[in-house]
């Protein structure tokens, strides 16, 4: 009898042990319950010192497209509007918010030609210039809104080479009460930088009528954009080079024109060829330094090839001397010097 009791006990223990057991762990929020996220567009903003506006984009991150059509995700919207709070901070180059900022507005794009302002929709933009704290309504059925601060262009626009950084930081701080499953990312901040046009920043013109200058430009940048190869001076209207904090851009405007649809109005515009790169290492706000940027070239079969430019720049007065060598996987240009003016 003792045997049987012991064995029955053993059986019970074994059956219990065999029962479903998945061991303790902390469950991650199911992807279906993962909240929508309001974030600030991560790209740093900036403009030359005479600019009269600063823009910031607040958006919802993309979500899974339940139909499976948009494989990379589909823009999400809210079912009901929510108030978004933001804050301006870290002012540099000016003393008070009211000194540099004279107003602001918020809107969203309905389509390429229409904004919410055109429809008379008020996003109730507020900004306390004493504290830099403000708010705006993020409406339902919209995936992003844009905030545009109106700046006084005279405050920063001087004729001296400024030694320190100038600008301010825009940050989201919270959202109002909502029934949405929504969170706001308060970690991402966007820095609006004021570029000193006494330094390298801003637009520079190249003299395309100068045969040497044109040849250098075309030789240097044709490996980044094959459309440049074989152009002649007579085909070119003008060439401009722009330096921003993190971007390099060559804009070549052709004489040839085309008619485009500008929100229902036909408009004749010149054709443009663009070469845009990201600075790897623009040495500060100096007037002289190293140049290092990378341009992505899209091949006919879709591959992306990186073209790397390295060299130096030096600004003396209204002349910028840019010396560069371009390389990709297969080719390398000679070291060529461009002389730009403004």
């Amino acid at each position: 009898m003792k045997h049987k009791i012991s064995l029955i006990a053993l059986a019970v223990v074994l059956i219990t042990a065999c029962s479903k057991k998945k061991f303790e762990h902390t469950e991650v929020t199911d992807v279906a319950d993962f909240p929508k996220q309001l974030v600030l567009d991560e790209e740093d903003a900036g403009d030359l010192e005479d600019t009269d506006k600063a823009s910031f984009e607040i958006k919802l991150t993309d979500g899974i497209d339940p139909t499976g059509t948009e494989l990379a995700g589909k823009p999400q919207t809210l079912g009901s509007a929510v108030t978004v709070q933001f804050k301006l901070k870290d002012a540099e180059g000016f003393a008070t918010w009211s000194e540099y900022i004279v107003g602001g507005t918020a809107f969203y794009e309905v389509d390429d030609c229409t904004t919410s302002e055109d429809l008379g929709v008020d996003l109730q933009f507020t900004l306390d210039l004493a504290t830099g704290i403000g708010s705006v309504i993020f409406p339902a059925n919209v995936s992003s809104i844009e905030l545009e601060l109106e700046l006084d262009p005279t405050i920063m626009d001087d004729a001296v080479e400024n030694s320190g950084d100038r600008g301010f930081t825009f940050a989201l701080t919270g959202i109002g009460t909502t029934t949405e499953n929504l969170v706001i990312n308060t970690d991402i901040e966007t820095e609006f930088r004021v570029y000193d046009d006494e330094k390298v920043f801003g637009g520079w013109a190249a003299d395309h009528t100068n045969a040497t200058e044109l040849t250098n430009i075309l030789d240097l940048f044709a490996i980044a954009n094959h459309d440049l190869a074989g152009l002649t001076a007579s085909e070119i209207d003008n060439i401009e080079v722009e330096f921003a904090f993190d971007k390099f851009k060559l804009l070549l405007t052709l004489v040839e024109t085309e008619t485009v649809d500008n929100c229902g109005t036909p408009e004749v515009v010149n054709l443009e060829i663009e070469v845009e790169g990201e600075w790897e290492d623009l040495t500060g706000d100096a007037t002289t330094g190293d140049a290092h940027f990378i341009v992505e070239r899209e091949e006919d079969n879709g591959f992306i090839t990186e073209v790397e430019y390295e060299g130096s720049f030096e600004r003396i007065g209204n002349t910028l001397t840019l010396t560069l060598t371009g390389t990709d996987d297969d080719a390398e240009t000679n070291e060529l010097t461009l002389t730009l003016t403004r």
């Binding site: 991650v28 929020t29 992807v31 993962f34 996220q37 494989l71 995700g73 969170v183 308060t186």
Partner: peptide, 16 residues
């Protein structure tokens, strides 16, 4: 995981 669940705004799902 506790941190992840408490701070979903800091994490972005890679939909693709």
């Amino acid at each position: 995981v506790d941190y992840f669940n408490a701070n979903p705004a800091q994490f972005e799902l890679q939909i693709e």
